[in-house]
């Protein structure tokens, strides 16, 4: 079993290397790093802080987009080119396909996180950068699992990508939305507000609070801790397991 999963994982990594993903990632990082130096030059004070916060914020989003679109494109291509049909015809369990792909994409996501984080070492020091990079890797792992689930469910790029982007943005604002609904300016006792609050709290039970992960403060204020990171890791693994299980569930029900 592990041979099949490892083989699929290996070929997933090979596919990432042979597409334009390394070039695109390197180009994105180079452009954002260059822009951060421009921001540093126009700042009249706290130039390092501004440069770090600009680069960290933008590269985090760039790596999310690269990861999500690569995963969705790769599995979408397997569906369209009937590569998956052929693999399943060779007596490959569907769960092994999902696990193998997941393993490969997780390796790619870790590499992207490392490439993004390495430039931060001179700006933010080793510890803050290590915490931020590990958190980014965990965040991208969640994105990988979610993207796999979406493309298996929707089978085409547009709806899958739209859902992943919307979910990610929601996960990054859910805490702010909960705070706003919990403390309205007026109308706290009205029925519509109560319904809205229950709905948002219900959504918050499903959506992981990604806005609490990979925080720029860990880099500029060195306010992160390894305990906090362990909690992030636990939550990320749990959510990835849930979503991957859902992906396997969906793939098992699909007729080819």
């Amino acid at each position: 079993m592990s041979n099949r999963i490892a083989t699929i994982g290996q070929y997933t990594v090979l596919e990432a290397l042979r597409t334009r993903l390394p070039l695109l990632a390197a180009l994105s990082i180079a452009v954002l790093l260059g822009a951060s130096f421009f921001v540093r030059e126009i700042a009249i004070t706290e130039s390092t802080r501004l440069q770090t916060s600009f680069y960290a914020g933008t590269v985090r989003f760039a790596m999310f987009m690269l990861t999500a679109l690569h995963v969705i494109g790769s599995i979408g291509r397997d569906f369209q080119d009937k590569g998956l049909d052929m693999a399943l015809a060779l007596d490959l369990p569907r769960s092994h396909y999902v696990m193998g792909k997941l393993a490969g994409f997780l390796a790619v996501a870790a590499a992207l996180a490392f490439a993004a984080g390495v430039s931060l070492v001179p700006l933010a020091g080793w510890e803050g950068t290590a915490q931020w990079t590990l958190s980014l890797a965990l965040e991208l792992a969640v994105v990988v699992a979610l993207s796999m689930f979406c493309v298996i469910t929707f089978t085409s790029l547009m709806p899958a990508a739209s859902f992943v982007i919307a979910f990610y943005l929601l996960a990054r604002v859910i805490t702010a939305i909960r705070l706003i609904t919990a403390n309205p300016v007026a109308g706290a006792d009205t029925v519509p507000h109560q319904v809205m609050q229950w709905l948002i709290e219900g959504i918050a039970l499903i959506v992981p609070p990604i806005d609490q992960w990979t925080r720029t403060e860990w880099l500029v204020d060195h306010s992160g801790s390894w305990t906090m990171l362990a909690a992030v890791a636990g939550h990320a693994v749990l959510f990835a397991v849930v979503v991957t299980a859902a992906a396997v569930f969906d793939l098992q029900r699909r007729n080819f």
């Binding site: 501004l50 990054r172 702010a176 925080r215």
Partner: peptide
């Protein structure tokens, strides 16, 4: 608060610039 997308430091820098 919503527009920060969980990254208030970055948005603060953007506002100042």
């Amino acid at each position: 608060r919503v527009a920060t997308f969980g990254d208030p430091v970055g948005l603060s820098a953007a506002l100042m610039l």
